[in-house]
Design a protein around this nucleic acid. Structure first.
Length: 319
RNA sequence: GGAGGGGUUCCCGAGUGGCCAAAGGGGGCAGACUGUAAAUCUGUUGUCGACGACUUCGAUGGUUCGAAUCCAUCUCCCUCCA
C-alpha cells in the first residue's frame, strides 16, 4: 500500500507557498520545498522564500517546512542530492504520522520524486571527467564531443541536440560509467499521489510576476545580492546564477543600469514561468485549479476549500 | 531658407535591379528536459483552401521582362550651415 502524498505545483508567483500552508493546516501536514534556489541560506527576497511569519496558518497552526535554508550559498547542489534529501524528509514526516506536502516549481525536482524512473543513484557524477570534457569542448569544439558521444553511446546521443553542451557532457559522463541509454519516462509514482497545479491565464500571470519583482526591489533585493557578494559568494556560483541574482549582479558590475536589470529580470522570469508551465502541462496526473477569481486575501482559504472538497476542475475542463 | 542623412516585417537592424516574405538580433509563441534545472537547449514568427497564391519594405506615380533596391513628386524624422 502506497503512502499518501500531496504536491502543489505551478509557475512562479501563483501563491503556491500560501496554499500549501493552508492545506497543511487542514491535513496535519508538513511542507517540503521543491525549489532549487530556496535551499540556500541568504537567498530570501530574490527566491521569494516564505517568511517564518507566513508559516503560521490562519488557525494559528505553525507549519513545519523542510529543505529551506539548509545550504550555504557557496555550496553546489544538484538533483541527485536533492532526491536523497527530499526522500529522507518525506520518510521522516510519514514516520511521524504526518502528511508530506511537496510545494515548488522546479519541474525536474518534482519529477525526481514522483516518477519511479528517476533512479539517479545508478548514474553517478564524475566531476573530474566533467572538467576534462569541458576543456575538450573548448579546445576541440562541441561537434567533436557530440561525435564522440554518438560513437560511445548512440542511444544517449539521439535524445540530445548537438548544441546542448551541458547535456552532451553529462551524457558522456554517464556513458563512461556504463549507461548506454536514457531511462523511459513514466508517470508511475511511488506514492498515493494528489498533485494540484495552480493555474492563471498568461496575461494575469505575467502581471503578477512584474508586481512581485517590484515588491522584491522594494524589499531590498539589491542589498541582499550585495550582501551575498560581500560574504564572498562567487557571482558564478550555483546560488547566484538563480533568477533575480544574476540580473542584479549585472547591474552591480556596471554592465547596465538598474532599470535595465529590472527589465531583464522581468523578462527572464516570464520565460521561466513559461518553461515551468511547459513542464507541468505534460504531467497528466496534475489536477489544475484556476485561481483567477480568488483575491489575495481569500486565496489560501478558497484554494484550500477547493482542494479539500475536491470540487476540482480538471485540466481539460478549464482549458 | 540652404546642404546632407534617413524612413524595411511587433521592435532594433541588414539588404542598393532577379537567388527577397526579405540576413541577424530582440520580443512573442511553442517545445525539450533523468547530477548546474530559477540552468541548458530546440522550433516557429505577413496572410491564405498553403510543394501554390496573395499582400508587404513612408505615400503616390514612373522606368523595367522584373524594384525594398533606379527616377519624379509628396510626406515625416535626424544632422550641419543660415
Amino acid at each position: 500500500m502506497k503512502s499518501k502524498l500531496i504536491a502543489i505545483v505551478g509557475p512562479t508567483a501563483t501563491g503556491k507557498s500560501d496554499t500549501a500552508v493552508a492545506l497543511a493546516a487542514r491535513t496535519n501536514g508538513e511542507i517540503i520545498s521543491v525549489d532549487s534556489a530556496q535551499v540556500y541560506r541568504g537567498l530570501d527576497i530574490g527566491s521569494a522564500k516564505i517568511k517564518p511569519s507566513e508559516m503560521i496558518a490562519a488557525d494559528g497552526t505553525a507549519i513545519l517546512h523542510h529543505l529551506l535554508d539548509y545550504l550555504d550559498p557557496k555550496e553546489d547542489y544538484n538533483i541527485a542530492r536533492f532526491q536523497i534529501d527530499a526522500k529522507a524528509a518525506i520518510e521522516d514526516i510519514q514516520q511521524r504520522g504526518k502528511t508530506p506536502i511537496l510545494c515548488g516549481g522546479s519541474g525536474l525536482y518534482v519529477h525526481s520524486l514522483l516518477n519511479t524512473s528517476y533512479q539517479l543513484e545508478k548514474e553517478p557524477g564524475d566531476a573530474a571527467y566533467r572538467e576534462e570534457l569541458k576543456e575538450l569542448a573548448a579546445v576541440k569544439g562541441l561537434t567533436y564531443l557530440y561525435q564522440r558521444l554518438q560513437e560511445e553511446a548512440p542511444e544517449l546521443a539521439k535524445k540530445i541536440h548537438p548544441n546542448d553542451e551541458k547535456r552532451i557532457i553529462r551524457a558522456l559522463e554517464k556513458s563512461r560509467h556504463g549507461a548506454t541509454k536514457a531511462p523511459e519516462l513514466n508517470w508511475e509514482s511511488p506514492y498515493d499521489l494528489a498533485i494540484f497545479g495552480l493555474y492563471l491565464p498568461r496575461e494575469i500571470l505575467y502581471q503578477r510576476i512584474e508586481k512581485r519583482i517590484d515588491q522584491m526591489l522594494e524589499a531590498g533585493l539589491v542589498a541582499e545580492v550585495k550582501s551575498l557578494l560581500d560574504q564572498g559568494v562567487d557571482p558564478g556560483s550555483n546560488a547566484l546564477t538563480a533568477l533575480g541574482y544574476k540580473e542584479i549582479i549585472g547591474y552591480l558590475a556596471g554592465r547596465y543600469d538598474l532599470e535595465e536589470a529590472i527589465r531583464i529580470l522581468k523578462r527572464d522570469t516570464r520565460h521561466f514561468a513559461k518553461r515551468q508551465l511547459t513542464w507541468f502541462m505534460r504531467d497528466p496526473r496534475i489536477i489544475w485549479i484556476n485561481i483567477t477569481n480568488m483575491s489575495d486575501s481569500d486565496r489560501p482559504h478558497k484554494k484550500f476549500s477547493i482542494l479539500s472538497s475536491r470540487k476540482i476542475k480538471s485540466k481539460g475542463e478549464y482549458l
